[in-house]
């Protein structure tokens, strides 16, 4: 046989991802929210909160004299990631299960890991587009600098989003209903944002909190982004933490996955 036959695991994965992507684009409300939320968040935080544009004086280099809004750039991305990974993604999967969309697919050779990864990829693409817009908005409105190490920043973002999505996949596997998925999602949403520096961005996070935070998916992403964005280092340890989450959470979610 000279025909190229994809292994059963991968067969149809491309078509599934493309179809999920098309279906996502048809849902205008979701698209507008997904794409517009991160840039509006950055602009909103910067304009609405008092003191965001004033330089902070008591910070160490390289942060000295930076306005607070710059420190919030990685946090805004973390917030966007958390919203998609912990709310949008598990709700989508559980809704498909409740409707019987997954039950229909259960009878085909498509495997759970294909379904999960396709959903993550579509959401990741939307997130990347939205966050590029958010960075551009921050640069235009507040003069937020571009990351010093763009490749490391991009890597940190993608790995962090994928790792946090792993938590969302686990929630989708465990939650019996969409309402439960939302509840569990919110339960981990705020602690994860806390570790991402929502209330103590960048270097203002206490050392002990930061030491714990770097072992959470979103905290690791936030710290890796800080390093790549402002310090110019390569955040190897954080990247390893995020990769480890992916390596553990995805197979676990696929194993616990229920079609109906």
């Amino acid at each position: 046989m000279t025909t190229l036959t994809a292994s059963p695991r991968l067969r149809g994965f491309g078509t599934l991802t493309a179809t999920q992507g098309r279906l996502f684009l048809r849902d205008t409300g979701s698209v507008v929210f997904a794409i517009a939320f991160p840039p509006l968040l950055v602009i909103g935080i910067g304009l609405a909160l008092p003191g965001m544009r004033a330089p902070i004086t008591d910070l160490p280099e390289p942060w000295a004299g930076m306005p607070a809004i710059h420190l919030f750039a990685p946090v805004a991305l973390a917030l966007a990631v958390a919203t998609v990974a912990l709310s949008t993604l598990p709700s989508q999967i559980v809704a498909e299960r409740e409707l019987g969309v997954l039950r229909r697919m259960a009878t085909t050779p498509m495997r759970p890991q294909g379904v999960l990864v396709a959903q993550v990829l579509v959401n990741l693409c939307a997130l990347v587009a939205a966050c590029v817009l958010a960075i551009a908005a921050g640069a235009l409105v507040f003069g937020t600098p571009a990351p010093v190490a763009p490749v490391a920043a991009a890597l940190a973002f993608v790995l962090g989003a994928a790792a946090t999505a792993g938590v969302g996949l686990l929630i989708a596997a465990l939650a019996p209903k969409a309402s439960a998925a939302n509840g569990i999602g919110m339960l981990v949403y705020f602690p994860m944002l806390f570790f991402a520096g929502m209330w103590t961005p960048g270097p203002t996070m206490p050392d002990t909190v930061a030491a714990i935070a770097r072992f959470t998916p979103l905290g690791a992403m936030s710290q890796a982004l800080n390093a790549a964005w402002f310090e110019g280092g390569f955040p190897a340890a954080e990247l390893v933490v995020m990769a480890a989450y992916i390596a553990v959470l995805y197979p676990l979610a696929a194993r616990l996955f229920r079609w109906s």
């Binding site: 019987g100 969309v101 229909r104 009878t107």
Partner: peptide, 9 residues
Amino acid sequence: LQEARLPDR
């Protein structure tokens, strides 16, 4: 199967 459907869109 019964109780199976497709995405609306």
